[in-house]
C-alpha cells in the first residue's frame, strides 16, 4: 500500500516537474510566465485523439502528438510573443493569459465542450505484481518517461552549444547576444523544449484519464506554476524539485487526510506552499541572475 502510494506520488510529481520545467525554461530566457502552457497540453491531447481516429498506431500517434506540441509552442512564440519582444513582464504575462483564454474558446467551439474519450491500449491500464506489491503500469511508465526526459534535457543543456548558450542566457541574455548567438534561435529553442515537455506531460496525463477536454491543461498547469514558484521562478533544478515536492505532498495528503478534510486538500497544499515561500521568498533553489548597479 505504501509502495503504491509512493509510486503514485512520484508519477504525479514527475508530470508536475515536466510542466514546471517547461515553464521555467521559457521564464528563464524571456521572462514570460506562459499561461497558455496548459493549452499546449490540451492541443497535444486532441492531436493524439485525431491521430488515433485516423488509424495511426498508438506509439506513432503519441510521437505525432508530442511533435505537434513542440511545433505549436514554437508557433505560439512566433505569432503571439515575438511581436511583444522587449515588452514588460506584465505585458507578456497578460498576453499569454489572453492567448490561453482564446485557445480555450477555440477548442470549445472547434472540437467540443464535452470530454472526448481516448482509447488507451489495455496494457497501459494493467498492473504487475512483485510478491505482495501491485504496481500500476501507467504510473511506472510515467516515472520512467519523466526521468528519461529530465536526463535528456540535462544532457542537451550541458553538452550542446545551444544548450550551453541557453543556460548562459538564463543568467544574462544580453551578454549571450553579444557573443554572437542569435536571440531568435535561443528563444525558439526554449519554446520548442517547453512544448516537448508539455507534450510528454499531456501524454502521461491523458494515459491516466483516458479522455480529453478543452480545460484539460488548466489544473495541472496551475499546479505547475505553483511548483515553479516554490522551486524558485526561472530555476530549472528548482522547477523539478518543486514539481516532485508538490506531487508527493498532494498524494500523501490524499492518502492520509481524514474523509472530512479531503475536499480541503488543495487549500492545505497551497497554504503549505505559501508557508515555504515565507521562509524562502526566492524559492527552494533560487535562480541565478546578474545584477548591474
Amino acid at each position: 500500500m505504501i509502495a503504491q502510494q509512493i509510486i503514485n506520488a512520484v508519477s504525479l510529481g514527475g508530470v508536475y516537474a515536466l510542466l514546471a520545467l517547461g515553464l521555467a525554461i521559457v521564464f528563464s530566457i524571456v521572462g514570460l510566465i506562459n499561461f497558455a502552457h496548459g493549452e499546449l497540453m490540451t492541443l497535444t491531447g486532441y492531436a493524439l485523439l485525431a491521430a488515433l481516429i485516423a488509424g495511426v498506431p498508438f506509439p506513432a500517434a503519441v510521437l505525432l502528438a508530442v511533435i505537434c506540441a513542440a511545433i505549436a509552442a514554437v508557433a505560439m512564440e512566433r505569432i503571439a510573443f515575438r511581436p511583444m519582444r522587449g515588452a514588460s513582464v506584465t505585458s507578456l504575462l497578460l498576453t499569454s493569459f489572453a492567448v490561453s483564454g482564446l485557445l480555450k474558446v477555440i477548442f470549445q467551439n472547434g472540437v467540443s465542450a464535452r470530454p472526448q474519450a481516448v482509447a488507451i491500449p489495455g496494457w497501459m491500464t494493467g498492473a504487475f505484481s512483485f510478491g505482495d506489491f501491485t504496481i500500476g503500469v501507467g504510473p511506472t511508465i510515467s516515472i520512467a518517461v519523466s526521468i528519461l526526459a529530465l536526463i535528456a534535457l540535462e544532457f542537451f543543456l550541458r553538452r550542446t552549444v545551444t544548450g550551453t548558450a541557453m543556460r548562459a542566457a538564463a543568467e544574462d541574455f544580453d551578454v549571450v547576444r553579444l557573443m554572437g548567438i542569435p536571440a531568435n534561435r535561443i528563444i525558439a529553442t526554449a519554446f520548442l523544449l517547453s512544448g516537448l515537455l508539455a507534450g510528454l506531460a499531456a501524454m502521461l496525463w491523458v494515459a491516466s484519464r483516458a479522455s480529453v477536454d478543452p480545460l484539460m491543461g488548466f489544473t495541472p498547469v496551475l499546479k505547475a506554476f505553483i511548483a515553479a514558484v516554490v522551486g524558485g521562478l526561472g530555476s530549472l533544478p528548482g522547477a523539478v524539485a518543486g514539481g516532485f515536492l508538490l506531487g508527493v505532498i498532494e498524494v500523501l495528503l490524499q492518502a492520509m487526510l481524514p474523509a472530512a478534510l479531503a475536499p480541503y486538500r488543495d487549500a492545505i497544499v497551497l497554504s503549505g506552499v505559501i508557508a515555504v515561500l515565507l521562509i524562502r521568498p526566492q524559492g527552494l533553489i533560487p535562480a541565478v541572475r546578474v545584477q548591474r548597479s
Binding site: 515553479a228 514558484v229 475536499p263 480541503y264 488543495d266 497554504s271 521568498p281
Partner: peptide
Amino acid sequence: TPLLRLSGSSASIATLALLIIVYTLLVAGR
C-alpha cells in the same frame, strides 16, 4: 502579509494560489 514578501511574477502566481485556495474552501465548506 505573506504574499507580498514575494515580488514580481512570483507574487502574481501567489495571488493565483490564493484564488485556488479560496475556491477550494468555498467548494469544500459545504
